[in-house]
């Protein structure tokens, strides 16, 4: 099998300047094509920048927006993942990642988990997606798309792998923070992400592709460090921290089969068990108040007679 060449576009988008970001995406798509890439991955909100706040509505695009379709036309022949603010027909705004193939938008993943804590305020401005599924692609294996915080929830990589994905792709705008000498590469964020991605790759016996942006917005520095992890959990490639660049990585898709034959974790998953227990947990959680009430004594406790 021919190796798949992945192009990781570790870019620094310009905040709120859609035209500039569209232009840089077009340039990168051309460079990726010239470099022989089959799959090109751009970071979360690469077309708009991240800290948009009230700008979100001003840079939002419908999935049939001519600017997005223009980009899809430029990308024809390759599989390209771009991310932008998507406005739905009912005017909800989503942080979306789209798979562009054959000159069109093949699939859209809407970010499921919107961090609204610490330095994040996403739920204030965006609606969460509610669909999670793997997507067939023109590459010979299905893909699983996720956006940044989606990967901080175990069910996401698990569900994508069970649904058939062999390459899990996370596009991110991860702010670097928690500087301390004790962390790998001096950055707490990088250490956490690397642990997650290696674990997911190993447990789902899938490739994990992580494309994280660089550059600065307001007080935040995005740290880059994009990676490709093999189905056995080893980093095949790690991009530099903070440097903008287009990085090419070749992967052998046959590695997924080798790993899954040798380590049949996915075969041995018990989704029916998981589902049964999840149903029970959900029932208990939602009926908790009723349960407590029903267990409350309906009659007064008998008072021991005094002798």
């Amino acid at each position: 099998m021919q190796p798949l060449r992945i192009a990781l576009a570790q870019l620094a988008p310009r905040l709120g300047v859609l035209e500039d970001n569209l232009a840089s995406h077009r340039q990168v798509i051309e460079a990726a094509r010239a470099g022989g890439a089959g799959l090109v991955v751009f970071p979360e909100l690469g077309l708009t920048g991240y800290q948009l706040q009230d700008l979100a509505a001003e840079v939002a695009m419908r999935v049939d927006d001519p600017r997005l379709l223009g980009l899809a036309a430029d990308a024809a022949g390759m599989s390209v993942i771009v991310s932008f603010v998507e406005e739905a027909a009912d005017h909800r705004l989503f942080i979306s990642a789209a798979l562009l193939e054959n000159g069109g938008v093949r699939f859209v993943h809407r970010k499921l988990f919107l961090p609204t804590y610490g330095l994040f305020d996403e739920r204030r401005f965006f609606a969460p997606g509610d669909r999670l599924r793997a997507v067939e692609s023109q590459l010979s294996v299905p893909l699983g798309l996720a956006v940044c915080e989606d990967f901080w929830h175990l069910a996401v990589p698990e569900t994508l792998a069970l649904d058939g994905a062999q390459i899990l792709i996370n596009v991110s705008s991860s702010p670097g923070r928690d500087l301390a000498a004790i962390h790998e590469v001096g950055l707490g964020t990088a250490a956490s992400w690397r642990t997650l991605m290696r674990t997911y790759a190993q447990l789902t016996t899938s490739f994990v592709v992580f494309c994280n942006r660089v550059g600065m917005e307001e007080t935040i520095s995005f740290w880059g460090g994009s990676e490709v992890i093999s189905p056995s959990g080893e980093a095949i490639f790690t991009a530099p921290l903070f440097d903008e660049g287009l990085y090419f990585v070749d992967i052998e898709l046959g590695d997924v089969r080798r790993e899954r034959i040798g380590l049949p974790l996915l075969r041995d998953e018990r989704p029916e068990l998981h589902l049964r227990e999840l149903r029970r947990i959900l029932a208990e959680r939602t009926e908790m108040a009723i349960d407590q009430a029903s267990e409350a004594p309906t009659e007064p406790e008998p008072v021991p007679e005094q002798s």
Partner: peptide, 21 residues
């Protein structure tokens, strides 16, 4: 010791911050 940071990373971030601002 708990306050020790990687000065290369800190410098990189602060210098980038100044340039960008």
């Amino acid at each position: 010791p708990e306050l020790a940071i990687d000065t290369d990373v800190a410098r990189r971030v602060m210098v980038g911050f100044i340039r960008n601002q």
